[in-house]
């Protein structure tokens, strides 16, 4: 239980400081082109590293996970919003795992 509270303090504290400190203290623009570029690319790199290949292990059947992945990718490329992409991915996984036992 102590472990939980320490972890929560680390997560909440670091997240809050990362958000509030620059908001409160930094008023000038960051000058270094490298740091500005790095900050531009980092969100996409993080989200990708978290998703691939972990999404294929999130579901009991890797094939169902793959269906969810492909559905999300196609809809996202078509410009659908966050909520519809997320729900469609869930739907694809659900339907695929229902059908799979019959093959």
């Amino acid at each position: 239980m102590t472990h939980y509270w320490i972890c929560l303090a680390i997560m909440a504290g670091s997240t809050y400081l990362l958000r509030a400190v620059p908001f409160s203290l930094v008023r000038r623009k960051i000058q270094s082109p490298f740091i500005r570029s790095f900050l531009h690319y980092i969100p996409y790199a993080v989200l990708t590293a978290m998703t691939v290949p972990a999404i294929f292990y999130a579901v009991d059947a890797p094939l169902a996970a793959a269906a969810g992945f492909i559905t999300a990718l196609v809809l996202a490329l078509l410009g659908k919003g966050l909520t519809s992409v997320a729900l469609a991915a869930c739907g694809a996984v659900y339907v695929t795992s229902l059908i799979l036992p019959f093959f």
Binding site: Y44, L47, M50, T51, D60, A72, A86, A88, Y94
Partner: peptide
Amino acid sequence: QDLMNALSVALYGMFIAIVAPV
């Protein structure tokens, strides 16, 4: 279990929705 299984990919779906268009 099937439904929980399916919902566990929602977060990944959202990440894909953020990354893929860009």
